[in-house]
Design a protein around this nucleic acid. Structure first.
Length: 427
RNA sequence: GGAGAGGUGGCCGAGAGGUCGAAGGCGCACGCCUGGAGAGCGUGUAGGCGGGAUCACUCGCCUCGUGGGUUCGAAUCCCACCCUCUCCGCCA
């Protein structure tokens, strides 16, 4: 949510900034209209309430003195009726304004490159060399089938498309990666581990920006207010909703493993094979709450921490700065980390690291004080995948595949795996 | 799921239609005291919105779980919902 004061004082500046994302939301002009009307009504209502408060005191005085207060009471009956009318209209306006504000995306940071689509994203750096193979590298789903570690058919039978069973060493690999990632971020980067609820209420989804605009992307539990989380970002960011943190509380850094659930509406036909796009996947998420002046430094650090996972696993990747047109709804700036996938012959997103500035904090009412008596300010929130686990499995299988169809386990993972290689069964 | 109790400021806790944004205590901040610390004493200690001022200022309105209602007037009365606790049942 944008700052309404900013909209009042610098509407043109906001329009210019949002224009970089694409079309300027028509909501902006509508906001000015509604806000003006709202303020006029509030002023009138407040004045009448003031009058009512004063006269109520007087009535109390008269009654205590045993005098007649009927005239004043009758007078206030009228005033109260008028207040009721005004407040009803104010309520309606507020609901409309709220809905409107919640549908306006965040303003891109000035360092975000111009551009309309992912084609305009800017590569920031590369790490590692894509491996060369003396044979035809196979896609991970073919490798996995041969190894007997993933079973998409069984999942389709039990649930439906875009689900998977991990089996045997595949299941262990997924679990090993989760533990490896969490341990790294906790031990080396100072994150606190949390294990969040997988269901959240509507307000939390609004807090991080998934709702109200992207209802169709989420799974909702019927006959309830609960949504399956699309990412641990939602529960973990909302962990501090409606709080005012103390001067020494920031920065707060959390790492959370969770399953993630996405409807993938509009993705029909895309990435239909393998682990790339599933309705349920695992992710280790990094979430930070920081002081406003620290958030861009924190974004660089957080991105570097996510990259470290790939470096330890020896997986080649590149980092891309999303252009304004490709930015997510709530983000002010985003780096995507893309891992090399030999079967695709290209880099595929495996992490997305964003600074939301105060956009989510304002929606979820997450504030802090600089000093014990200082005025509360909104924190800045950030998050990033550290990493998407299923895609990491895909990358390991493909990058570490051998001519005989076996897959070597990266060094860093062996303590968690207990084996050095996953080999196909002897026929 | 059944029965009961309860949600008040950072925390504990009073308050039972008007003088209550709310006693008292703890905590915290500042000051005095001290060689320093503690004790003691004093002062101050919520948030939101709107208007005026625009460094820390001021006026008004709102907020005692949330939302409605009754009333001239609600922390206080009524209704619905949410949450917490206790007991029973069920259960990993």
């Amino acid at each position: 949510m944008l700052d309404v004061k900013r909209l009042r004082h610098d509407l043109d500046g906001v329009k210019r900034a949002l224009a970089r994302r694409g079309a300027v939301p028509a909501e902006l002009d509508r906001f000015v209209e509604l806000d003006t009307a709202w303020r006029a009504l509030v002023a009138e209502s407040d004045q009448l309430k003031h009058q009512r408060n004063e006269v109520s005191q007087e009535i109390a005085r008269l009654k205590r003195a045993g005098e007649d207060a009927e005239a004043r009471i009758a007078e206030m009956r009228q005033v109260s009726d008028r207040i009721k009318e005004l407040d009803e209209r104010i309520r309606q306006l507020e609901a409309e304004i709220d809905e409107l504000l919640l549908s306006i995306p965040n303003v891109p940071h000035e360092t975000v490159p111009d551009g309309a689509s992912d084609a305009d994203n800017v590569e920031v750096r590369r790490w590692g060399e894509p491996p060369t193979f003396a044979f035809d590298p196979k896609p991970h789903w073919e490798l996995a089938e041969r190894l007997g570690i993933l079973d998409f058919e069984a999942a389709a039978k039990v649930t439906g498309s875009r689900f998977v069973f991990y089996k045997g060493l595949g299941a262990r690999l997924e679990r090993a990666l989760i533990n490896f990632m969490i341990d790294l971020h906790v031990r080396e980067f100072g994150y606190e581990e949390v294990f969040p609820p997988y269901l959240v209420h509507r307000h939390s989804m609004i807090g991080t920006g998934q709702l109200p605009k992207f209802e169709e992307d989420a799974f909702r539990v019927v006959d309830s207010d609960y949504y399956l989380i699309p990412t641990a970002e939602v529960p973990v960011t909302n962990l501090h909703r409606e709080e005012i943190l103390g001067p020494d509380d920031l920065p707060k850094k959390y790492v959370a493993y969770s399953a993630c659930f996405r409807a993938e509406a509009g993705a029909a036909g895309r990435d239909t094979r393998g682990l790339i796009r599933l309705h349920q996947f695992n992710k280790v998420e990094l979430v930070q709450f920081v002081k406003p002046e620290d958030s861009y430094e924190a974004l660089e650090a957080l991105t570097a921490q996510a990259e470290t996972v790939l470096q330890r696993l020896g997986l080649p990747y590149r980092v891309v700065a999303l252009c304004a047109g490709d930015l997510g709804f709530a983000a002010a700036k985003t780096y995507d980390i893309e891992v090399w996938l030999p079967s695709a012959g290209t880099y595929r997103e495996i992490s997305s690291c964003s600074n939301f500035e105060d956009f989510q904090a304002r929606r979820a009412q997450i504030r802090f004080r600089r000093a014990p008596k200082a005025k509360p300010e909104f924190v800045h929130t950030l998050n990033g995948s550290g990493l998407a686990v299923g895609r990491t499995v895909a990358a390991i299988l493909e990058n570490y595949q051998q001519a005989d169809g076996s897959v070597v386990i990266p060094e860093a993972l062996r303590p968690y795996m207990g084996v050095e290689v996953i080999a196909p069964p002897a026929d």
